[in-house]
């Protein structure tokens, strides 16, 4: 069970949660010009005019929660609600502006943009680089490599540049790398609908297996069916704020009403 409030004092100290998020806010200080304007000339010109572009985007506002070990936390919300930002902060990729995140365990990420694969490199090179970047040693990777390739079902393609891969093959390898990194905590952001129906089923089963082995999963998805099937608790974010937290059926129903989506709308249910 995930809990949104601080745990009550107990006579014996309980095991620490896998993830503890304490009053976390994340603000993007976008003194950032549009990417194309991040130039020396643009900056000098702004400095000369003493024009300071500061735009604050509060992506996450005062979110607190705990994710106990062995549970699946689903995060739902409209586009721009702060879901990906919160997950990236849990992974240590984005720093919180205020508050504190404590993580007990090895984290593996499967985020919206893949695992950082370089399409010029072969599948094999990407698996090794991704694993080393994630903190595994070369020995650990050598032990895991066969398992990763077998799970992705890409044995014949591992020595080919990834630019030759289809989107499905790319996603399968990314999923396989993420789940085979021996993670204690797996963070998945809108990456459930990888591969064909066969692989989708396989990835669902693998996640169930990880849960049964007391691994912790944080899952961001717009697919409500996946949420109902996998999550123990659901966090609903809206404009960075916690709008709801609790059992999946209740929170999903409230979310769908808020979004004016019919509960039995097949499109809203799918992983897209």
């Amino acid at each position: 069970m995930s809990t949104a409030s601080a745990p009550a004092p107990a006579p014996a100290r309980a095991a620490p949660p896998a993830i503890s998020v304490e009053a976390v806010s994340i603000t993007y200080h976008s003194s950032l010009q549009a990417r194309g304007q991040q130039t020396l000339v643009g900056t000098l010109s702004r400095l000369r005019r003493r024009k300071k572009i500061v735009k604050q985007v509060k992506a996450v506002r005062e979110v607190s929660l705990e994710v106990p070990r062995g549970t699946v936390l689903g995060i739902i919300g409209a586009n721009g609600a702060g879901k990906s930002t919160l997950v990236r902060a849990m992974a240590g990729i984005l720093p919180p502006t205020s508050g504190k995140i404590e993580v007990h365990g090895r984290v593996s990420t499967l985020l919206a943009l893949g695992v950082g694969f370089d399409r010029k490199l072969t599948g094999r090179q990407n698996v090794i680089l991704g694993g080393l970047a994630a903190g595994l040693s070369r020995e650990q990777l050598e032990g895991k490599y066969a398992e990763i390739v077998e799970f992705a079902e890409l044995e014949e393609f591992m020595d080919m540049p990834m630019r030759t891969y289809s989107a499905g093959m790319y996603g399968r390898l990314a999923f396989s790398v993420a789940v085979n990194m021996e993670p204690d905590i797996l963070l998945i952001d809108e990456a459930l609908s990888v591969g064909d129906a066969h692989f989708k089923r396989k990835s669902f089963d693998k996640m169930r297996e990880l849960c049964e082995a007391a691994h912790t999963i944080v899952l961001v998805s717009h697919g409500m069916r996946a949420m109902r099937e996998l999550a123990d608790e659901v966090l609903w974010l809206d404009k960075g704020e916690m709008k709801g937290y609790g059992p999946p059926p209740k929170i999903i129903r409230e979310y769908q009403r808020f979004m004016k989506v019919e509960e039995d709308d097949a499109v809203g249910e799918e992983d897209v």
Binding site: A12, R13, P16, R69, P96, I101, G105, V107
Partner: peptide, 23 residues
């Protein structure tokens, strides 16, 4: 000791412990 058991759990299963805070 219950507290030691909790710590033991943390160490045995999750030898990595990360704290992310503002710098």
């Amino acid at each position: 000791d219950p507290a030691a058991l909790a710590d033991g759990w943390a160490d045995a299963y999750t030898p990595e412990h990360h704290v992310y805070e503002p710098h």
